[in-house]
């Protein structure tokens, strides 16, 4: 039982033949081989599997492949900008926002979604946006700090290069990384 879908994955158009009941998370990990997206609970309660679906953060463990015709999907593997770390990634490195790192891909995707909408979030807005991403290691302090650092860096770069704002520093408009 398979169905043919065309999706844009990390900026690259792909035609896939997939079982329609397969969850997006399993599709990414098992069928496409992108293991950066993690399963923490499988029930939408932890956010580890967060990806961007048509620009919006969703739990990929609750999305069926059969719903994906025409979808635009960005995963952690699509976050880098060419060979460079995305400012969000850079900030998490700098501030120690990752410990075991297992929740990190989901948190980075959520952070990107937040900063795409709001380039100058308050601490409260950051905490609110990330409340669906559980982390057992950090106590969230360094994650919040990293988001603030990333936001400041993005604001700085938009001032310097106003044209980059429309792209939101997003890899989907760039050349995709090969895997």
């Amino acid at each position: 039982m398979h169905t043919k879908i065309q999706i844009r994955l990390n900026g690259k158009m792909q035609t896939l033949t997939v079982p329609p009941f397969r969850l997006l998370l399993d599709l990414l990990r098992d069928e496409i081989g992108l293991t950066g997206t993690k399963e923490g609970c499988g029930t939408g309660d932890c956010g580890a599997c967060t990806v961007l679906l048509n620009g919006k953060p969703v739990n990929s463990c609750l999305v069926l492949s059969g719903e994906l015709e025409g979808a635009d999907i960005v995963t952690i593997e699509g976050l880098k900008i060419g060979p460079y770390l995305h400012p969000v990634q850079q900030a998490f490195v700098q501030e120690g926002g990752a410990q075991c790192g297992y929740c990190t891909p989901g948190i980075l995707m959520m952070t990107k979604a937040l900063l795409d909408e709001n380039i100058n979030p308050t601490e409260e807005e950051i905490r609110f946006a990330l409340s669906g991403n559980l982390c057992r290691c950090t106590g969230y302090a360094k994650i919040i700090q990293a988001v603030q650092t990333a936001a400041a860096e993005l604001r700085r770069s938009y001032e310097e290069f106003p044209s980059s704002q429309r792209r939101g520093g997003c890899a989907t408009n760039k050349m995709p990384r090969s895997h």
Binding site: G44, G47, T50, L53, K56, P57, V58, N59, L62, V63, M110, A113, A129, S131, G132, N133
Partner: peptide, 9 residues
Amino acid sequence: VGSIQIRNR
């Protein structure tokens, strides 16, 4: 309701 990820769906 849930998280932003949930509410987007």
